[in-house]
Design a protein around this nucleic acid. Structure first.
Lengths: 328, 328
DNA sequence: ATGAAAGCGCTAACAG
DNA sequence: CTGTTAGCGCTTTCAT
């Protein structure tokens, strides 16, 4: 078990003081003889020295750690979000501490506590809770935060999200064109989840005065299938709008089980196709977001906020795209 | 901008020395008056004090950081793997530093370097490279490592993987029963990826003497579609065996584009169905792994290794399951 | 039952 | 152009 090599070892070996080594490490070559510089470089190489991050952090109050809190790590949206975040920080000296709330409010809070203990320099948060007061822990410590996918209200921090409301307005037009008479919005509980609320509200807004019924069905409720089935039977030309990927697949499965024909018996469109939507018959129409870009932009904003540039708590909307296929 | 509260603040406020606070923090109550204890607890609560991890780490040489290096963060297998890992460490005091190699050997190495700089206490590695010498960086520093999904050879560290070889042997039996005459194994490059090699080798082993042709087609090669098509035409009763989820979906897409009927024109089975396999028509037969359990077990093994229990560099095999549906 | 003091590995005045 | 020194926030002997 070899001892770790420290800045002192390098200093001794290179025959200079550790100050000089520190200068070298931090790229302060202004007044360093090329001779010394070369000798240091060589010594570091030879001993395979890597400065200790904790010691640096302790001294500089800069951990170079970024916390990322996601609602549920095991879904496609999250994977791609993380891809974008990781890609961005890869180019920097920051490391990313990813924590999975597993859709538990308690666990999310505990994760955030842990992040604070780790002295993270900033946080990317996909909030589970709508009220900013819930996160006062972060406010108290004045930690830079950028929200992704969803945001608290009133606004506490900048957010990078999809253009949910606008896309639903567009969708409303399509529903009208195709003369649907009822839109059954299928979702997990939407209360307090800004993205879902915006998707729902945008639809209602786009449909006002059209005479088209909008009905929300939350699938965490018991027996949503029967409810949905009844609604479908009740209308001439109904369509399902599924507010996220998992719900979309639940809808497909539902239609299959009840032997409902898509789009004849019921139209279907939903969020987040993830490359599978065009594999099944009929090909499913969908709204495809760009989580990777959301991650990238959020990372970018967070970094500039960490570096002291004041970021106004504003929404950044990343465009999503409506993919019309055969199910609607 | 409020200053961080430190152990000194607590000491002063509570009217004791920081030694005592430290004792409190580390649960050393043996010789502490319940009076002092209560006072400390109260003060910590009031000031919302959290000990600084970097300072602790510097002193104890224990960062409580675990590095996780994955081949590609944006796929289902990985998501579920991370779920398992996170779930386990959630219950401990360790934090998880996830890094995405994005299938780049160079980036993987750079990530590992970064992990070492962060003084991680241990690493979970899904290795991109088969030769352990490639990872001598880790050997040099004597870092505890547990491999997942794949392993280097010769063995350097324990590995937690699926029962790839055995499952392929089972599959071979099924192929025989269904009297296929040719198995077209579809994969990304298999060389150096132990999981893929085991899946392939197991099949060959299970099929020796059966007269059934086995043909490997690597889809990173140019125009694998034509090659595959030719092979299919050439045999009476061929089947495709796709070695991972993404390849499986490529195969489905391929069949669709070439208007091949499954399973009449060609049988199909593949790894990692991820809940979609039974959504399409025909429902796709698949081998479903348990990445979450792999992650959990790897985390467990790593932790005991970090805690000094010598872990023999042995394989742990987590069973996967063959799901027979309509495509084979 | 508690404290004083040294030191983990590094950075940053300040000095020369 | 380089070194001396103090100190970041904590843990840990060694005292008492």
């Amino acid at each position: 078990m070899d001892k770790k090599v420290t800045i002192n070892d390098i200093a001794t070996q290179a025959g200079v003081s550790k100050t000089t080594i520190s200068r070298y490490l931090n790229g302060k070559f202004d007044n360093m003889s090329s001779n010394t510089k070369a000798r240091i470089e060589e010594t570091i190489d030879k001993l395979d020295y890597r400065p200790n991050r904790q010691a640096q952090a302790l001294k500089t109050h800069h951990s170079f750690l970024i916390g990322v809190s996601v609602a549920d790590i095991s879904n496609m949206y999250t994977s791609r979000l993380l891809k974008g975040i990781g890609e961005y920080f890869q180019k920097t000296h920051y490391q990313v501490l990813i924590m999975d709330a597993d859709n538990s409010v308690a666990r999310e809070l505990s994760n955030l506590e842990k992040m604070m203990t780790e002295q993270v320099d900033g946080i990317i948060l996909q909030p589970l809770v709508h009220q900013p007061e819930h996160y006062q822990l972060l406010v108290a410590e004045n930690t830079p935060v950028v929200q992704v996918d969803r945001y608290t209200e009133p606004f506490a921090w900048p957010a990078v999200v999809s253009d949910n409301f606008q896309k639903s307005v567009e969708l409303a037009k399509i529903f009208k064109t195709k003369s649907y008479d009822a839109i059954l919005v299928l979702a997990n509980h939407i209360n307090g989840v800004s993205s879902r609320m915006n998707r729902y509200n945008g639809l209602e807004a786009g449909l006002t005065g059209s005479g088209i019924t909008v009905k929300l069905i939350e699938i965490d409720g018991s027996d949503w299938q029967s409810l949905l089935h009844a609604e479908i039977k009740q209308h001439q030309h109904p369509a399902i709008f599924a507010l996220n990927g998992q719900v979309l697949w639940s809808a497909v499965r539902f239609a299959k089980e009840r032997s409902l024909n898509i789009p004849e018996d019921v139209g279907l469109i939903g969020y987040d196709d993830d490359q599978f939507a065009d594999m099944i018959t009929p090909a499913i129409s969908s709204v495809s977001q760009n989580p990777q870009e959301i991650g990238r932009v959020a990372a970018e904003q967070l970094l500039s906020s960490v570096n002291g540039q004041a970021t106004p708590p504003k929404n950044t909307r990343i465009p999503s795209e409506i993919q019309m296929r055969d199910s609607l």
